[in-house]
Amino acid sequence: MDQSLTLAPVREASAATESEFSSFSHTLPDGRVCRVQILAGGSVALHVDGEPQALLTARFDATHVSIESLAGDADSITRQPPEIFLPLFAEYFARPAHVSTIEITLPVSHAWAVEAVRRGIFDECVETTGGCRLRCRRASFWQHPALWLRAVSSAGFAQRFTLTNHHRHPVRPPKPCGVVYERQLPHLDLTFSLRTIDVERDLELFNRWMNLPNVASVWDQADDSITHARFLADQEADPHTQTLFGCFNGEPFAYFEAYWVKEDRLAPFCDAGDYDRGIHILVGNRRHQGPAKLEAWLRSLFHYVFLDEPRTRVIYGEPRIDNARWIAYMQEQGGMKLKEFDFPHKRAALVGLSRETYFEEFGPR
């Protein structure tokens, strides 16, 4: 049965008595900031650089949210890009509520609505009296990169092919620098981010982690800082591997490698596509252990890899066969154990997570 919905219950809080701004925001290409103001009584206002553009109200029935415009002329909305709605959608899709679709009725032209669909903000639009009804599915929302990517994605790099060790594969784009992905985790009151490795800045921490007994037993790379500096420099020079630190509120807690499978040593053992990737994982800061944090950062890592290159169809992992814990973690997040095989240095399990499974059934929630 339909009933009024304020945003406060979605955020697992009591109904707001005063207006407040959501923690989700989006910066447009021209530098203006889009935010959502949560108002008493269940209404919300969309703001661009502090100026309200539309007043909306929402109703829900189980997993479906219906949003209608209460005030705001059509010219005010259509002068803005459709990306102004992304922070509002995040209020529903990025919190622990089981919302699968959002339907919104706006006083906009059909041409504006079609452009919004083409830009990936909505899945479909239908003309109505005085405007259009637009729909966005949860899986589609999570595939839009605007809220999460902080670096230019790999998708725009022109396709051309080369050979590496007799493997034909696309030439890879230059690697980004700095923070490449960031996501608010309201249920943990944390911000997760991924940033690239800076050898000079990060060597001491990387060396300390690699020499931890529990890490050394898996990675087998305990050594001095000179050796690790050379290792990180080699990784930076290798176009098929991207090295990253995972951070909570800016504090590094894990080291990740995301690599293109086609030119990797894993290639002979799986049927990888041209843009499929594999991951290696090292958790160095035990203070950030725990099932809730693990699920949040692991799903976020998958999210980044899929967003960076829309042609990535599968993410592979190849943990050692006796590392039952990590095999189970990947399976719990949608991965499938495909087979066991022998690397020169270990017997491994091949685990694959498909894009379709991730976005349709899991996502980064």
Score class of each variant (00 low, 15 high):
His47Thr: 13
Val283Glu: 05
Glu12Tyr: 08
Arg230Asp: 12
Ala97Trp: 05
Val199Gln: 10
Leu266Asp: 06
His144Pro: 00
Ser354Gly: 09
Pro173Cys: 07
Ser76Thr: 15
Phe256Pro: 03
Phe60Pro: 00
Asn165Ile: 08
Tyr329Met: 13
Pro107Gly: 10
Ile281Thr: 09
Pro173Arg: 10
Ile327Pro: 00
Ala292Met: 10
Phe248Cys: 05
Leu190Thr: 02
Ser43Tyr: 00
Trp148Ala: 06
Arg138Leu: 06
Val33Asn: 06
Arg195Asn: 01
Pro52Asn: 14
Asn211Pro: 01
Arg311Gln: 07
His303Ala: 00
Gln3Met: 02
Thr191Glu: 01
Pro9Arg: 14
Ser217Phe: 03
His187Ser: 11
Ala233Met: 15
Ser217Leu: 13
Cys247Val: 09
Gly334Gln: 09
Ser22Met: 08
Thr227Glu: 07
Gly50Trp: 12
Ser14Asp: 12
Ala233Gly: 15
Gly250Thr: 14
Ile77Leu: 07
Thr227Arg: 14
Leu353Trp: 04
Pro107Glu: 11
Ser193Gln: 10
Val108Cys: 04
Asp220Asn: 14
His280Arg: 09
Gly130His: 07
Leu244Gly: 04
Phe141Gly: 01
Leu188Cys: 03
His167Ala: 15
Ala58Glu: 08
Phe362Asn: 06
Val179Arg: 02
Gly273Asn: 12
Ala328Ser: 12
Ala54Phe: 09
Asp308Tyr: 02
Gly130Val: 08
Leu88Arg: 11
Leu307Lys: 03
Met330Lys: 09
Arg133Ser: 09
Pro176Tyr: 09
Ser69Leu: 11
Tyr181Ile: 05
Glu127Arg: 15
Gln221Glu: 13
Glu318Gly: 10
Tyr275Thr: 12
Ala349Ile: 13
Lys262Ile: 11
Val261Glu: 02
His280Met: 05
Arg299His: 00
Gln37Arg: 15
Tyr316Gly: 09
Ala58Gln: 10
Gly156Asn: 03
Ala272Val: 12
Glu20Val: 10
Gly334Leu: 06
Leu28Thr: 06
Pro364Trp: 04
Pro213Glu: 09
Glu103Asp: 10
Pro81Gln: 14
Arg133Gly: 00
Asp271Met: 13
Ile121Asp: 00
Pro87Ala: 14
Ala139Leu: 07
Arg118Phe: 06
Ile38Gln: 06
Tyr181Pro: 00
Val108Ser: 01
Arg137Ser: 12
His98Trp: 07
Val179Ser: 00
Val36Gln: 01
Ile67Tyr: 01
Pro174Glu: 14
Leu294Asn: 03
Thr191Met: 04
Gly31Met: 05
Ala292Tyr: 02
Val36Met: 08
Pro52Val: 15
Met210Gln: 11
Glu263Gln: 08
Lys339Asp: 07
Ala71Lys: 13
Ala113Gly: 02
His345Lys: 14
Val44Thr: 04
Asp198His: 11
Tyr92Ile: 13
Ser23Ala: 14
